[in-house]
Design a protein around this nucleic acid. Structure first.
Lengths: 334, 334
DNA sequence: ATCGGTAGCGAAACCGTTATCGCTACCGGC
DNA sequence: GCCGGTAGCGATAACGGTTTCGCTACCGAT
């Protein structure tokens, strides 16, 4: 490990000034091809790695986009990230991920940390934040996009779907197919606002046609196939006359399907099942499960697009409020 | 959006010097409780967010740990990350993730980008890198840990399991249970070195007892249940006399199980199945699939531990080479 | 021969914070 | 009453680049 190599060292070795070396390595103009080649050669051979801390401080620009999501285990956010990465791919911007753990206090601290690096943009999942977080988002001098959800008041830009509507729509589909004894299995309510909204929309949609939920089960912790299977078993034991269960996540509905398989129940004959997200794990199972596509990838793409956009226009453009329309796929379980 | 608030503004408002404000906000000593309270109050009420770019440049320290993994969709790396996060939780260090996309050139560029931020540590998946990457890892003036794999020559520290051995062990288990007509279904070989090593170890383990693979299928693209199901169907159609299939990933073996379910094949009666990773999606399925636990979380924990360790000791300690022992669980499909 | 324009390069200021060192009260001990 | 020690605070110089501006050749056109 040689002592750290600075720009001034590269410059000295190349017999030029720091400025010329800086320009050459950044591909800036005003450097002759010959000089540039020489400097690049020296930098490469000596393994020079520029110090972006110093560079960013000086240029007052950081080519990073902060992305704050609740979790990476849930199967849903990695795909949002894919969308973001894809769009940022051929721009100088790079995504940086922070995890809030479905905790608004933690979210606040993660966002504060992120903003302290003065990123070129911030993408954050959800519309619910602490007061302090909202202030930071408002005052941030970079584009801010709240994603996933449109049911609420975004601070600035917003891209997502209406989970309230998604719940209502699924209720309508379920009722339209004649189910009336309906159960709901959902995830940790207080912290997952979108799941909560789907639940509210769902009960709302049922109520619109005079139907109330016959059974409800809430659980804490991450969604898992195993959990879905166990809770489905419990619920059906408790309420054997149910004819349909709506799960707040596909991961859970897969568990439901697994229980039915094991218990010899036909789906949707004995019991209909529906989930949410349209995760990839639904493909290849014994039956195509009913679900709502959460437009995860597209949300990521559009959010990244907004960041790029307002970079070009200098951020003096109007607000974007992008409400995507999630498609329900009925599969074979409704 | 108010014009950006600087430390000097906070200091002026509090009627103290920049230094005192800086000390107060960082919790450094030499500030009276009264002064500190006043400065903190002003900073909070005005929504001051410190500029960590400037701070890091000045203090020559960045409290970030760079983590470079091939993908976040594969179900496997998020759990490594969980382990890292958990250990870093109550230290000032924060993990920052970079995605290499199973591409060594991309990995090089991501690592270069990461190192240009002068992180406090670097954790990278795999032992195979471009020449330039290796030079960077050697010259990096922060602890470097290569994780997941121990079959090769680490640049510095290393934590992982032997995938070669994992393949061999699974071969031994399969042979011990009497299977002889064995197929293998594995992922994009040239880029996923660990899958390749499991394959090599597996064929090696079979060869040790005079058995050769009866059928082999390689595919490109991400692993998916659907893919596993289709390839299993194809392979069994082509080689109906197989009695066991080893998959390079649990995601694929789940697909295999789904095919058997659909085709009315009993497992392991008609065909035995085994995967790798011990992913959470194995829990709750109709049968407990055979697999090898890849120690993902523990690898993350130990890697983060090494970073913390060498931070305390000033990095003057010996190299760590941590070879974990993955446990095979036979489940009900072998 | 003169002149305007530009390609190529360098000197100095600056980005916003922290490290370092020095200074001033104020305190208790003798 | 003097003195050494320390708590509390401020001035200044980094940190390693980039921005800005200025300078020097050199070019073709007049």
């Amino acid at each position: 490990m040689t002592k750290k190599l600075l720009l001034k060292d590269v410059a000295r070795l190349a017999g030029v000034s720091e400025m010329t070396a800086s320009r050459a390595l950044r591909g800036a103009p005003d450097v002759s091809a010959k000089t540039k080649a020489k400097i690049e050669e020296i930098a490469r051979s000596h393994g020079y790695v520029p110090n972006r801390i110093a560079g960013s401080l000086s240029s007052q620009s950081v080519n990073l986009v902060a992305v704050v999501v609740p979790s990476l285990n849930s199967f849903v956010f990695p795909e949002v990230l894919s969308g973001i990465s894809a769009v940022l791919k051929d721009s100088p911007l790079k995504p940086v991920v922070g995890i809030s753990g479905y905790d608004l206090e933690e979210e606040e601290s993660v966002i504060r940390e992120m903003l302290s690096w003065r990123p070129s943009g911030l993408i954050v999942a959800g519309l619910e934040h602490t007061e302090a977080t909202c202030r930071m988002l408002q005052q941030a001098d970079c584009p801010v996009v709240e994603v996933m959800d449109v049911d609420g008041d975004p601070v600035r830009h917003c891209v997502g779907i209406s989970h309230l509507q998604a719940g209502r729509d699924m209720a309508a589909q379920i009722l339209a197919r004649g189910y009336r004894r309906i159960g709901f299995i959902g995830t940790k309510m207080p912290q997952d606002f979108r799941a909560r909204k789907r639940f509210d929309g769902f009960t709302d949609g049922l109520a619109a046609q005079g139907v109330t939920l016959s059974d409800i089960e809430h659980y804490s912790g991450e969604s898992a196939i195993q959990t879905g299977r166990q809770l489905t078993a419990q619920m059906l034991a408790r309420s054997p006359d149910l004819d349909c269960i709506y799960f707040s996540s596909d991961v859970m509905s897969v568990g439901g399907l697994m229980h039915c398989l094991a218990a010899g129940l036909t789906v949707p004959g004995d019991i209909a099942l529906a989930g949410f997200n349209n995760l990839q794990i639904l493909q290849g199972l014994p039956q195509q499960l009913a679900t709502t596509d959460a437009c995860r990838r597209e949300i990521g793409e559009r959010a990244a697009g907004i960041i790029l956009q307002s970079r070009e226009t200098g951020g003096t453009e109007g607000l974007v409020f992008d409400r995507l329309c999630p498609a329900i796929s009925l599969g074979e379980t409704l």
